[in-house]
Write a protein that binds this DNA or RNA. Structure first.
Lengths: 219, 219
DNA sequence: CGGTACCGATCAATCGATCGATAGGGAATG
DNA sequence: CATTCCCTATCGATCGATTGATCGGTACCG
């Protein structure tokens, strides 16, 4: 038993039932330990959630900054941002879902801090869109609406993609890059942007599979 | 005090904090009544949520069926579906948000029933997309991914649009119809499809404005 | 008098969190 | 080798607070 295993159990249950609807005892039972033991690894229920969300947002921001660090056409920048975002959401769907949905569960200080991270992240998209518009590469009626629509579409991947499903992570990335280019009114970049992009990272908080947490494995 | 006012207060708080994180007493306080009074209007906390969500989903399904009832080009059908969906989400953002996010809070019977409504609704989109593909109007690599991306984009409107903001409902509808056509690889329909579409309906559960519920108005 | 609307008091259950106690392993000491 | 000591990991018991829900009672209206 370690922090990573606890985080995985927590993410499983929070993704399924939500933060407020999941009790400490339920988390402990699913992790196979007494509820009091959880307080040996984290200060509080909130703290567990916060550390999971912070890791996810920081990795998202870090890899996105890296993705637009190279100078390139706005269309390429957009494609790289979408590929990075979809990659993380597809490889870590439950963690991404919890990170996206449970911001409202945070107390003011953590809430402010994580909202700040999210704003920084979205600003990267806004900048690329602005650049694409000023250079005539994108064709949009309203930059803000387009950005929000794009982000909702990409975030949504965490709501429906499952690693053991029909499509590979790379296939979903390809598809969403194509759809994103269409949204922006930009020419399709058929994977040409992804050459030097590092593979998405599996977060420590992401459950490895749908283990029946709480069930004792025979043997 | 009536059912509509209670529903509006409930939707306000559920949209802000979530179903599980909002207590009965808190709902009563915000509505200006004792918590016991709420049980005079509804059988339980669950029942309030269920009735709100059912109304929203039924109106969504009803108006969508009406929208594709006329025989037309798949591109027109798509545009009409998106216009109807975005119209309802933009005019009733908090109700739509709660309906979308709190399905997991429902007990098995209600959960099954409302998931069924949602599946029926999404099947309308699947059918139009299939039709558009078979007639060569849409250009998609994967119909399922495109449908999910489209629905996430449209549902997302409820997460960011506010009626007192910069854009009118009609403007947001126009924008998202345009974006949806791009997603599908279909030619733009510049509002031509909306001629005989009835205006979106304001649901009884949608809060009228951001009244400071719980604050006593002087006078 | 009957019905609707509403409230204070209270129920058992559960909540997040804390406490002292215990068990085991490794390092230090004899 | 045996003993002591400390640290990590874990637990049962329990804290006060809050939860959703129910009850009997009250005020008012027709």
């Amino acid at each position: 038993m370690g922090i990573a295993e606890i985080q995985q159990v927590v993410v499983s249950l929070f993704a399924e039932k939500g933060y407020a609807a999941t009790g400490i005892r339920e988390l402990g039972r699913a992790a196979g330990v007494n509820s009091a033991t959880l307080y040996h690894y984290a200060g509080s229920k909130q703290e567990i959630l916060t550390s999971i969300m912070r890791s996810c947002l920081e990795e998202l921001l870090r890899s996105a900054i890296e993705a637009v660090g190279v100078s390139a056409d706005p269309g390429v920048h957009l494609a790289r941002l979408v590929r990075v975002h979809v990659g993380l959401c597809a490889l870590n769907p439950l963690t991404a879902k919890v990170t996206d949905q449970e911001i409202r569960a945070l107390r003011p200080d953590d809430h402010t801090a994580l909202i700040g991270l999210r704003d920084d992240y979205e600003a990267l998209f806004a900048r690329v869109i602005e650049h694409g518009m000023s250079t005539g590469v994108f064709q949009l009626t309203d930059q803000r609406v387009a950005r929000l629509a794009l982000l909702e579409m990409c975030n949504g991947v965490a709501n429906w993609y499952r690693p053991d499903g029909r499509l590979s992570v790379a296939e979903v990335q390809d598809q969403l890059v194509e759809l994103a280019c269409r949204l922006m009114g930009a020419p399709s970049r058929a994977g040409e942007e992804s050459a030097d992009l590092p593979a998405p990272i599996r977060l420590a908080s992401e459950p490895v599979a749908d283990h029946a947490y709480g069930a004792v494995v025979a043997g």
